[in-house]
């Protein structure tokens, strides 16, 4: 194989941190969702790297399940965003304080 698994882990760490930055810095709910997708992808990359490292197929099955979960999460989440926008005319998460969170 071409690179040490360490470098894959560091790349996935950087991607995950970019995702965290997106969630923390942006107020747009859609961008926050995209950042969550980035974080899921970072975890997938890490799983693939280690699946490769340990010569085991289990990590790839995990990635398959994570992708299923991401698809389900995105469909429900975007439906919630559309419903919110219909009721509140905003997707700025600072203005969505119905539960006083």
């Amino acid at each position: 194989m071409i690179v040490p698994v360490e470098h894959v882990v560091i790349l996935s760490l950087l991607l995950f941190l970019i995702g965290i930055m997106g969630v923390l810095f942006r107020r747009n709910a859609i961008i926050i969702f995209m950042s969550i997708e980035l974080m899921l992808n970072a975890v997938n990359l890490c799983l693939i790297g280690f699946s490769r490292y340990y010569q085991s197929v289990d990590g790839q099955v995990f990635v398959f399940l994570v992708m299923t979960l991401a698809a389900a999460e995105v469909s429900v989440g975007l439906a919630i965003i559309v419903a919110l926008y219909r009721n509140r005319q905003t997707i700025n998460i600072d203005e969505i304080n119905l539960m006083r969170g």
Binding site: P4, V5, E6, S51, Q55, D58, F64
Partner: peptide, 27 residues
């Protein structure tokens, strides 16, 4: 973790499909 990885055949669709439909059937 520093060593480079060996070539393998874990990633081909046959191996993944076999794992999905035997060990990971319930998930």
């Amino acid at each position: 973790l520093h060593q480079t990885l060996n070539p393998s055949s874990v990633g081909d669709i046959k191996a993944v499909g076999k794992a999905l439909f035997t060990d990971f059937l319930l998930p």
